[in-house]
Design a protein around this nucleic acid. Structure first.
Lengths: 331, 331
DNA sequence: AATTGACACGAAACGGGTTTCACAACGTAC
DNA sequence: GTACGTTGTGAAACCCGTTTCGTGTCAATT
């Protein structure tokens, strides 16, 4: 395969002239340009991107760290990031971790090795201290609240919509509630926030038997629903950590003849199909923002809004309640 | 940031000695190795992967060309590829095209520019001739039948399971059938195969009004179902080009009070949740094979099996039919 | 006629590694 | 004592671009 020297030789000009021609930099005589272009076509020459990256000191590649590649939450987020990257002529590499800290470290190392111009964490199991240690090697953005750690972040006001959910349930006198979480509440901010929100609204801690842990997919949703119904025959609601889990739970409840309602998260198509309420965490905006922040070179912490989307049983009960109130008032 | 020369200087050895130490190649005295490692740690030195790639002439990166990043079909396929790549120490870049030919060309160019060691096409809109033109720039594998074109491929025996579906429908006297396809049957092998299978089984071409085109997501599924019911009030079945489409169609049919059954493709969780039959195209095996074939350096064409998974109404009707036969026979 | 600036181009340094090759020191076998 | 093999190391070439810097030409200005 031809390189720039071959082109230079054939064109009868220097390597630097060929380079200038290709980059439209500096002065080039029209005739020279012609000759160079002719040689390039004759040799089917294409610039070596690796050599270019070495010379320019940048790769135009960024990495997105995701625990699971096929998880809808991260899917939506990476979609948004990828689109932004595309517009700015960046390539995106998806880096899956399965929440294995060693994997995360491995990806952070890509920064050290100059293989990436930046890294976006959509989630992580490494402590922030550890991640912060890499910030000198390249820009890093986390898609969750990084508190006082010196890591740029975009995050959603999860807690507020969690509070919203529990307040609505309380208002409807639905108190027997099961909550599913993906990871132990010690490591997952989201899990922590859900459990805390319950406690704030109901004035007491959520019973341990009403927390279903390690809930990751549809089938976990089935199991969670069975477990809750067994532990608490009067179960009235399940607040799930994702829409596929909610979907599984709902299906299981229907099969068990339970009328408990279900609330999901992420606003995936399945939540519409199976008609239950869900929280939209504003992942699109979050992804776009994450990419935007990558190349600001100062520390930023930015929040995006998340909100509850009312559907199905929850919506029905609320409208009935409003009607009741109206009747009571008019009497 | 330190480079290999800095390390060499500090260690009091040559650059080549440092390189040998890092690569465990050639002879290195134990003491020398110690000194080099000490210098490396002292300087927080990390090899520049770009420089390495330039020197070695390979990047250990492969690309997967997908039309949609968040489409379950491609999701499943890329998952399988990514896992294989991981084990062989390759990085994977997802390259989304939205079926824009220019995009596909752009990604093929990455091979020309030595930015990728190989490319896997999960689908494409470019003609094979065009793709074949790039095979000198690096290994390419297509995840569909490439016929006589000199492109390595893995593909599934789609047509057989399509025939299976229509034969079963025919046996059940279900003849008013709507078919959804993602792209025009001129460009999509899958669409072509579905329509051809119908013609083979029923001995006549599928009416145009029973083909719903440009069907890509759940909402298209809703629209498709409405359209079919409007065009053909006696509609008995919809054979969809994907499980989310099937799911949307099923929901719409239920709302319209239609008892037509639905058959999907891809065997996604939603097909289980909503309980309808679907074709499993063996995507996992296909992805694994695709990666495996990338670095064989001869042309290979390989087939993997796809099969119909019986559920819901279709299964029910079949078992009723068998029971009827049994009754008729025993009389 | 002398100076100046725009235009055009090439040599060479640079980015940061890997690998070949030459050479030296040492031990062992004959 | 000679020949040869093993071990250990460094100089330099190489991978393939980009960019700096210096030189040369030519037309316009003073």
């Amino acid at each position: 395969m031809a390189n720039i020297q071959d082109v230079a030789k054939l064109a009868g000009h220097s390597v630097s002239t060929v380079s200038r021609t290709l980059n439209n930099s500096g002065y080039i005589a029209a005739k020279t340009r012609q000759e160079v272009m002719t040689a390039i076509r004759a040799l089917d020459y294409h610039r070596n991107g690796i050599a270019r990256a070495l010379s320019l000191g940048k790769t135009n590649q960024i990495g997105i760290v995701v625990p699971y590649i096929n998880h809808p939450y991260f899917q939506k987020l990476t979609d948004a990031i990828t689109e932004m990257a595309f517009y700015q002529d960046y390539q995106v590499t998806l880096l899956a971790t399965n929440y294995v800290p060693e994997q995360e470290l491995h990806y952070l190392d890509l920064l050290k090795h100059h293989l990436l111009d930046g890294l976006i964490f959509t989630s992580r199991s490494l402590p922030f201290e550890e991640i912060a240690r890499f910030k000198d090697y390249g820009p890093i953005v986390c898609c969750e609240d990084t508190f006082d750690f010196p890591i740029t972040s975009v995050f959603t006001n999860r807690s507020e919509s969690f509070l919203d959910v529990f307040r609505r349930l309380k208002r409807l006198n639905l108190t027997h509630i099961g909550v599913t979480v993906s990871r132990n509440e010690r490591v997952s901010q989201s899990a922590q926030a859900m459990i805390k929100a319950y406690a704030m609204v109901f004035g007491q801690a959520l019973e341990d038997k009403m927390i279903f842990r390690e809930s990751k997919n549809t089938f976990d949703g089935l199991t969670a629903a069975r477990t809750f119904v067994k532990n608490e025959p009067q179960l009235q609601a399940i607040f799930a950590n994702g829409d596929e889990i909610a979907a599984g739970a709902l299906r299981q409840l229907q099969q068990l003849g339970s009328s408990a309602l279900v609330i999901g998260q992420e606003n995936l198509p399945v939540s519409f199909l199976m008609d239950y309420s869900t929280i939209d965490h504003g992942l699109i905006e979050m992804g776009q923002t994450a990419f935007g922040l990558l190349f600001k070179n100062h520390l930023v912490k930015q929040q995006v809004a998340s909100k509850l989307i009312m559907r199905g049983t929850l919506q029905l009960l609320e409208s009935q309640r409003i009607n009741q109130n109206r009747v009571l008032c008019s009497d």
